[in-house]
Design a protein around this nucleic acid. Structure first.
Length: 698
DNA sequence: CTAGGGTTAG
């Protein structure tokens, strides 16, 4: 059948004056849907008559039908050739189909060709067609063409104005939209809504709300579900719970509360103003919840760290019989990745397999992401290998997975494969590649990749790339080059870059440069405890105890924010969370006894801490008392006593693991003969038989 | 024909 059509179309690409009658055959054999036939056999609408004043030169109907068929098959290239074959104008419906297809594909050039054909064939478009074109030009942000069409002419109506306003507003040219809005002869709901939503989209919530207020005073203009949801987004954006509540009342009063989107905006407003439970209340009351409302609600729980409720709701969602879509899986898997809930992720994976999900679709890349994030690089690779054409996200996730998992060489090999596959890497891919070089200590290779970003791949260096490079250089003590780079870079260094430099200074005890980095950091984020703590550490290592005391004092003075260190471990589908010195766990006593025993054995084996006088709180997590254990050690200890001998332990931490714990866990892995995996905020550490995969280089 | 909510890689 397909070959048949092809050959028919082939004939059509040659200019011919009389299309073969076989075209009718083509039409009837391809139109399986009743919709299709209806579209073509319908008599022209009234407005279409107006559009076709040149009836005498009307071309053969079969031509129009052929174009319509091509349009329905979304074969724009062939469809667009057709009108040029005949000088007479096409039918209005045919032009409309062509423009629709161009609009769908955002094909500006082709649309212009259609437009040109209309002009040259003497077709005078009615307001319907010219508005469609106008919409297309606006959506393609081709405002010069749009303006030309829009210029004062008898064919423009209120709708044309609205299209222009909405076009400018969507493109972020809110001022132009507003001046049209102010100058228009009459306004309807569309005009107001386009303007309000334009302000919301482009970060001007105050203007949006102001206009919304003005609108209420106009007779004859009633706000509808569109204006209301935009106004709700505006109050959400400025966290104005009060205004949001007012709109909520208004919605109930005027009876707009039967629309899924209005409800969804309401939920969003309450949630983003810090009231998730109220959002849930509204969610429960929503009558026709669609997939979007479900996912938004589920997502809110995850964002707020309420993972149990998030997954409970997800399970309700599945039970409700609602058809999950691609976003559903992507969203939940992403939550599993963020929360490192591998078991649940696997369940979702199983579910996807049962309902026969498409490995081409993007949830497959969410699976790769989830497995990589959970440290299950083998499964990540398995899913990846099943994908016929892995997309950039999958490549990048896997490259990063390998890089963070202490297998930088695999990461780099994978990157070379990516290049061979013809996929174009982007900014983020290179972050993974550069950090792989850092983890592997491949400085020169990293420099080479860094330069290739601009030279070979035609991408611009971003601050992230510079931060990676500074990380790479300063960790290998190449401070001079790092400083030169910072002085030469075309943009302002960001906090990640300075923090990388500071980290390098800590490793190599470079106090002078550390001061430069901390000064810059104090300016960028004055209240981050990590900066002070690191500087204190470097000073302590250098024996400058006076400096240390000073730093301690300034920390007290400016009330720095300490991010609490958390470690967690998933055992039998339950997540156990620990903080420093945590005594709240039911098996707390056993955990502490275990760690106490361990210290004794450490001493017996002649283990001497290398950093006797150094402050141990390298990163944000501070040692509250000398006797308390850091969260990662508690979680590891619990893992060991709660699982049978030989089981691998997997612990996650929200901050970077400290030097002391790192050393202790190496020791633990040797004594108990277990594989211990700790994922900190930076990377994975795989401890086995007294060694760590990061080779102490992190 | 013109308008609104959630969108996966560091």
């Amino acid at each position: 059948m397909r070959a048949n059509i092809q050959s028919y179309l082939h004939k059509f690409l040659k200019p011919i004056s009389h299309p073969p009658s076989s075209l009718l055959h083509l039409h009837t054999t391809t139109s399986t849907s009743p919709h299709h036939t209806q579209f073509n056999l319908n008599p022209p609408l009234k407005s279409q008559n107006k559009d076709e004043p040149t009836n005498h030169s009307q071309r053969d109907n079969k031509f129009n039908e052929a174009i319509d068929v091509l349009c329905q098959q979304k074969r724009l290239k062939q469809a667009i050739e057709m009108p040029d074959l005949v000088r007479s104008p096409a039918a209005t419906a045919t032009y409309s189909a062509l423009i629709n297809l161009c609009l769908h594909l955002r094909a500006l050039k082709e649309a212009k060709r259609v437009h040109a054909h209309m002009k040259s064939s003497g077709f005078v478009p009615g307001v319907f067609i010219s508005n469609r074109l106008l919409d297309l030009y606006c959506k393609c942000e081709s405002f010069v063409d749009a303006q030309q069409l829009f210029l004062p002419n008898p064919g423009r109506d209120l709708c044309s104005w609205n299209i222009m306003i909405s076009g400018y507003a969507k493109a972020g040219r809110v001022k132009e939209a507003r001046s049209l809005f102010d100058g228009m002869p009459e306004r309807d709901n569309f005009s107001w809504t386009a303007m309000v939503s334009g302000y919301v989209r482009h970060d001007q919530p105050d203007e949006a709300l102001e206009l919304f207020r003005v609108m209420q005073r106009y007779e004859g203009i009633k706000c509808n579900k569109f204006t209301v949801s935009s106004a709700l987004s505006a109050s959400t954006a400025i966290q104005a719970l009060g205004i949001g509540k007012e709109i909520h009342c208004h919605v109930t009063r005027i009876g707009l509360d039967s629309d899924a989107v209005v409800w969804s905006s309401l939920c969003d407003m309450y949630a983003k103003c810090g009231n998730i439970d109220e959002a849930r209340y509204i969610f429960d009351k929503t009558v026709d919840r669609d997939v979007v409302s479900w996912m938004a609600m589920i997502h809110r729980y995850f964002e707020d760290g309420r993972r149990e409720e998030g997954f409970a709701l997800f399970s309700d969602f599945l039970k409700s019989g609602m058809r999950p879509n691609e976003f559903t899986f992507a969203g939940v898997l992403n939550a599993c990745a963020v929360e490192t809930l591998e078991d649940l992720g696997k369940q979702v994976h199983g579910y996807m397999t049962r309902i026969g999900f498409n490995p081409f679709s993007f949830p497959a890349s969410s699976l790769v992401h989830m497995y990589s994030k959970c440290g299950d690089i083998d499964n990540a690779k398995k899913v990846f290998d099943l994908m016929p054409h892995p997309d950039l996200v999958s490549w990048t996730s896997l490259i990063n997975g390998y890089s963070q998992h202490g297998q930088p060489n695999e990461a780099l090999q994978l990157f070379e494969l990516l290049l061979k596959s013809g996929t174009k890497p982007d900014r983020i891919t290179f972050v993974g590649v550069l950090s792989a070089c850092t983890h592997a200590g491949l400085v020169d290779k990293g420099l080479e990749y860094f330069h290739s970003i601009e030279c070979k791949h035609g991408l611009k260096h971003s601050t992230d790339h510079y931060a990676c490079l500074i990380d790479l250089l300063s960790r290998s003590r190449r401070f001079k080059e790092a400083e030169d780079m910072i002085d030469q870079m075309p943009m302002k260094p960001d906090k990640f870059l300075w923090a990388s430099l500071l980290g390098g200074c800590r490793i190599h005890g470079n106090l002078a440069l550390a001061k430069r980095a901390t000064e810059a950091l104090f300016e960028l984020e004055p209240k981050n405890a990590a900066t002070d703590v690191t500087l204190a550490n470097i000073s302590a290592t250098a024996g400058k105890w006076g400096e240390v005391a000073k730093i301690r004092k300034t920390m007290d003075d400016k009330e720095v924010v300490k991010k609490p260190g958390l470690s967690w471990i998933e055992i039998k589908r339950k997540v156990h969370v620990f903080v420093v010195g945590d005594l709240s766990h039911p098996r707390s006593k056993e955990i502490n006894d275990f760690l106490g025993d361990l210290s004794k054995r450490k001493k017996e084996e002649g283990y001497v801490p290398q950093t006797e006088n150094v402050l141990h709180d390298v990163e944000e997590e501070q040692k509250e008392q000398n006797l308390s254990y850091h969260s990662e050690k508690l979680a590891v200890a619990f893992g060991i006593i709660a699982t049978p001998p030989g089981t691998a332990i997997k612990v996650f931490k929200n901050l970077r693991t400290c030097v002391d714990c790192h050393m202790d866990i190496k020791f633990i892995s040797k004594i108990v003969g277990r594989k211990i995996i700790v994922r900190d905020s930076n990377r994975f550490h795989c401890f086995e038989d007294g060694r760590c995969s990061c080779k102490d280089y992190w």
